[in-house]
Amino acid sequence: MDWGVIIAGLLTLAIFSFLYRDNPAYKMAESLLIGVSIGYFLVITWTNTLMDLLFVPLTQDAKWPLIIPLALGVMMFGRFHKRTAPLSRIPIAVLIGSGAGVAIPAMLEARTLRQISATVGPLVTESGLPDISLIAVLVGVLTTLVYFYFSREHKGALGGAAKVGTYFLMSFFGTTFGYTVMSRMSTLIGRVEFLLSDFLRLTQ
């Protein structure tokens, strides 16, 4: 008898019971999920971050420069008191400054430049035929950008292009919604499979 499977099965049923109405079994399972998640996260953070990256190298390997991040971390707790609150601005400034410095060039390259370069490829294939998918991408990008251009009223050619842009947007939203439904169904199917095969042992 696998107690882990039994507990997991009962908790799954307790969560499903919410579909009928809110009840103590659901509340207990929900609280347990939150508690276990936070507990697991705290343990992992303590062992893999604070111990492995800070306290052990600092105390056992005498890596003294680590005092700087330790001090910055302690300053962050200054927010809990009015008089020490300004101290927390220093680590926040370091975080924002270094974060932006690392992120801006990388995001500009990966999300903007490479995407633009992929959009403006040759519109004709090597065999001389028009590349339908690339033309669709180009038209989609341009008309969607026109839709988000608010400096002039959407009338005439601008209005027509914006209208086409909305169709591309709607197609995207529809596809994304379809995939999301598929994803949620997969989660339900996964739990039902667990209940039928591992918990109730009705199927193999």
Partner: peptide, 17 residues
């Protein structure tokens, strides 16, 4: 990836990233 993330990553797949 999960199905819900497919449309997010399609442009990266198309661009070769």
């Amino acid at each position: 990836v999960t199905a819900a993330m497919m449309t997010t990553y399609d442009p990266y797949l198309a661009s070769g990233q």
